[in-house]
Computed example of a mutant assay.
Amino acid sequence: MKSVKKILMGIAIILFGIAISFGHDSFLFIGWIVSMFGLIMSFIGYYFTEDE
């Protein structure tokens, strides 16, 4: 169950990063960094899923 929470948190962080990048031009790189962090977190959550 923790892996599902990590995947969902990663997706939420990706969407938050996209929302930041739609702001002013100075926030574009901050949004990209936040989105990449969410993508990495989502992959980590997917990688550690347990097969049932």
Results as ranks from 00 to 15, higher is better:
residue 1 M to E: 07
residue 1 M to D: 05
residue 2 K to W: 08
residue 3 S to F: 03
residue 3 S to C: 06
residue 3 S to W: 03
residue 3 S to I: 01
residue 5 K to C: 10
residue 5 K to F: 14
residue 5 K to H: 12
residue 6 K to D: 15
residue 6 K to Q: 15
residue 7 I to R: 06
residue 7 I to C: 08
residue 8 L to R: 09
residue 9 M to W: 07
residue 10 G to W: 01
residue 10 G to T: 03
residue 10 G to F: 03
residue 10 G to V: 03
residue 11 I to T: 05
residue 12 A to T: 08
residue 12 A to R: 06
residue 12 A to F: 12
residue 12 A to I: 10
residue 13 I to R: 02
residue 13 I to W: 05
residue 13 I to G: 06
residue 13 I to L: 14
residue 14 I to W: 04
residue 14 I to A: 06
residue 14 I to S: 04
residue 16 F to N: 06
residue 16 F to D: 07
residue 16 F to G: 09
residue 17 G to T: 06
residue 18 I to V: 12
residue 18 I to G: 02
residue 19 A to F: 11
residue 19 A to D: 02
residue 19 A to S: 13
residue 20 I to R: 03
residue 20 I to W: 04
residue 20 I to N: 04
residue 20 I to M: 05
residue 21 S to K: 15
residue 21 S to N: 14
residue 21 S to Q: 14
residue 22 F to C: 12
residue 23 G to P: 00
residue 23 G to M: 00
residue 23 G to V: 01
residue 24 H to I: 01
residue 24 H to R: 10
residue 25 D to H: 12
residue 25 D to L: 13
residue 25 D to S: 14
residue 25 D to V: 10
residue 26 S to T: 00
residue 28 L to A: 13
residue 28 L to S: 11
residue 29 F to N: 10
residue 29 F to K: 07
residue 29 F to H: 08
residue 30 I to H: 01
residue 30 I to E: 00
residue 31 G to A: 02
residue 33 I to N: 02
residue 33 I to L: 10
residue 33 I to H: 01
residue 34 V to H: 04
residue 34 V to I: 14
residue 34 V to K: 02
residue 35 S to G: 05
residue 36 M to I: 07
residue 36 M to A: 08
residue 37 F to I: 15
residue 38 G to W: 02
residue 38 G to D: 04
residue 38 G to K: 01
residue 39 L to E: 04
residue 40 I to H: 03
residue 40 I to W: 10
residue 41 M to S: 08
residue 41 M to D: 06
residue 42 S to W: 12
residue 42 S to N: 11
residue 43 F to I: 10
residue 43 F to C: 11
residue 44 I to M: 15
residue 45 G to N: 07
residue 45 G to I: 03
residue 45 G to Y: 03
residue 45 G to P: 00
residue 47 Y to G: 11
residue 47 Y to V: 04
residue 48 F to A: 07
residue 48 F to W: 12
residue 49 T to W: 07
residue 50 E to R: 08
residue 50 E to W: 02
residue 51 D to M: 05
residue 51 D to G: 00
residue 52 E to F: 08
residue 52 E to K: 15
residue 52 E to Y: 11
residue 52 E to V: 05
